[in-house]
Amino acid sequence: TEVDLHLGDITIKLKDVSEEIVKRAKELFKNGWSAEFVKKWIEEAVK
């Protein structure tokens, strides 16, 4: 499945990412993480 994760003005296309990771990524962004950091976190999380 593909998900578009909207973080501010940046959209990250996610492939084969669990709902849990998407939820967590949104929380991290809301908590002040930059979109770049969230993207890196996701990449690490799906390895």
Results as ranks from 00 to 15, higher is better:
residue 1 T to S: 13
residue 1 T to D: 13
residue 1 T to K: 12
residue 44 E to K: 09
residue 42 I to S: 00
residue 8 G to I: 04
residue 23 K to L: 15
residue 42 I to L: 12
residue 21 I to Y: 03
residue 25 A to N: 00
residue 9 D to A: 11
residue 27 E to D: 12
residue 36 E to G: 06
residue 43 E to M: 08
residue 32 G to H: 03
residue 44 E to T: 10
residue 40 K to I: 15
residue 7 L to V: 05
residue 14 L to F: 06
residue 2 E to C: 10
residue 11 T to Q: 08
residue 33 W to F: 14
residue 16 D to N: 13
residue 30 K to V: 09
residue 40 K to W: 15
residue 18 S to D: 13
residue 44 E to W: 14
residue 20 E to G: 09
residue 46 V to E: 04
residue 45 A to T: 14
residue 30 K to G: 10
residue 4 D to F: 07
residue 27 E to W: 07
residue 15 K to N: 11
residue 16 D to H: 08
residue 36 E to N: 05
residue 17 V to E: 01
residue 40 K to N: 15
residue 38 V to M: 02
residue 22 V to R: 07
residue 5 L to F: 08
residue 45 A to L: 12
residue 2 E to L: 12
residue 9 D to T: 10
residue 33 W to R: 09
residue 31 N to T: 06
residue 15 K to M: 14
residue 37 F to H: 14
residue 42 I to Y: 02
residue 29 F to Q: 01
residue 27 E to Y: 04
residue 8 G to S: 04
residue 3 V to Q: 12
residue 14 L to R: 02
residue 16 D to W: 08
residue 41 W to F: 09
residue 29 F to I: 09
residue 21 I to M: 10
residue 7 L to S: 02
residue 42 I to W: 01
residue 22 V to S: 04
residue 17 V to G: 03
residue 5 L to K: 02
residue 27 E to H: 06
residue 33 W to Y: 15
residue 25 A to P: 00
residue 36 E to T: 03
residue 4 D to L: 13
residue 11 T to C: 08
residue 14 L to A: 03
residue 15 K to C: 07
residue 31 N to Y: 07
residue 15 K to Q: 10
residue 28 L to S: 01
residue 6 H to I: 15
residue 28 L to K: 04
residue 22 V to H: 04
residue 31 N to D: 13
residue 21 I to R: 01
residue 25 A to Y: 01
residue 19 E to A: 11
residue 1 T to L: 15
residue 12 I to F: 01
residue 42 I to Q: 00
residue 15 K to A: 09
residue 5 L to W: 03
residue 11 T to P: 03
residue 45 A to K: 08
residue 31 N to F: 07
residue 23 K to A: 15
residue 14 L to S: 02
residue 28 L to Q: 02
residue 26 K to V: 14
residue 8 G to R: 04
residue 35 A to I: 15
residue 47 K to P: 03
residue 14 L to P: 01
residue 15 K to F: 13
residue 12 I to E: 04
residue 13 K to G: 08
residue 37 F to Q: 15
residue 13 K to W: 04
residue 1 T to G: 13
residue 36 E to K: 03
residue 31 N to C: 13
residue 19 E to F: 08
residue 13 K to H: 14
residue 35 A to H: 07
residue 23 K to S: 12
residue 3 V to T: 11
residue 40 K to E: 15
residue 16 D to R: 04
residue 21 I to D: 02
residue 23 K to D: 14
residue 36 E to M: 04
residue 16 D to C: 09
residue 26 K to W: 11
residue 26 K to G: 07
residue 19 E to H: 11
residue 29 F to P: 00
residue 18 S to M: 08
residue 24 R to I: 11
residue 12 I to S: 03
residue 40 K to F: 10
residue 9 D to C: 07
residue 29 F to D: 01
residue 42 I to A: 03
residue 9 D to V: 10
residue 17 V to L: 07
residue 39 K to G: 09
residue 23 K to H: 11
residue 19 E to C: 08
residue 38 V to Y: 00
residue 40 K to C: 10
residue 18 S to R: 07
residue 18 S to V: 06
residue 12 I to C: 05
residue 12 I to M: 06
residue 38 V to H: 00
residue 30 K to M: 12
residue 8 G to F: 03
residue 34 S to I: 07
residue 35 A to T: 08
residue 34 S to Q: 05
residue 15 K to I: 14
residue 35 A to M: 04
residue 47 K to G: 12
residue 5 L to Q: 03
residue 41 W to G: 00
residue 38 V to S: 00
residue 13 K to E: 05
residue 10 I to Q: 08
residue 4 D to G: 06
residue 17 V to D: 01
residue 31 N to K: 09
residue 32 G to S: 01
residue 47 K to V: 12
residue 20 E to T: 10
residue 28 L to Y: 07
residue 28 L to T: 00
residue 40 K to S: 11
residue 31 N to I: 07
residue 1 T to P: 11
residue 10 I to G: 03
residue 10 I to V: 12
residue 4 D to C: 12
residue 14 L to K: 01
residue 24 R to L: 11
residue 38 V to Q: 00
residue 21 I to C: 06
residue 38 V to F: 01
residue 23 K to R: 12
residue 26 K to R: 12
residue 17 V to F: 05
residue 11 T to N: 06
residue 12 I to P: 02
residue 11 T to I: 14
residue 12 I to N: 03
residue 18 S to E: 07
residue 39 K to P: 00
residue 1 T to Y: 13
residue 6 H to C: 08
residue 16 D to A: 07
residue 10 I to Y: 11
residue 7 L to M: 09
residue 44 E to Y: 10
residue 15 K to W: 09
residue 45 A to G: 03
residue 22 V to N: 02
residue 32 G to P: 00
residue 13 K to R: 14
residue 12 I to A: 03
residue 36 E to A: 08
residue 43 E to C: 06
residue 33 W to P: 01
residue 9 D to I: 11
residue 37 F to W: 14
residue 2 E to P: 08
residue 42 I to H: 00
residue 9 D to S: 10
residue 20 E to H: 12
residue 43 E to L: 05
residue 41 W to K: 00
residue 28 L to M: 13
residue 15 K to R: 14
residue 34 S to F: 06
residue 7 L to K: 01
residue 35 A to W: 11
residue 40 K to H: 13
residue 41 W to H: 00
residue 5 L to R: 03
residue 9 D to Q: 08
residue 22 V to A: 08
residue 2 E to R: 09
residue 24 R to Y: 10
residue 8 G to L: 05
residue 11 T to G: 06
residue 41 W to D: 00
residue 16 D to E: 10
residue 4 D to H: 15
residue 5 L to G: 02
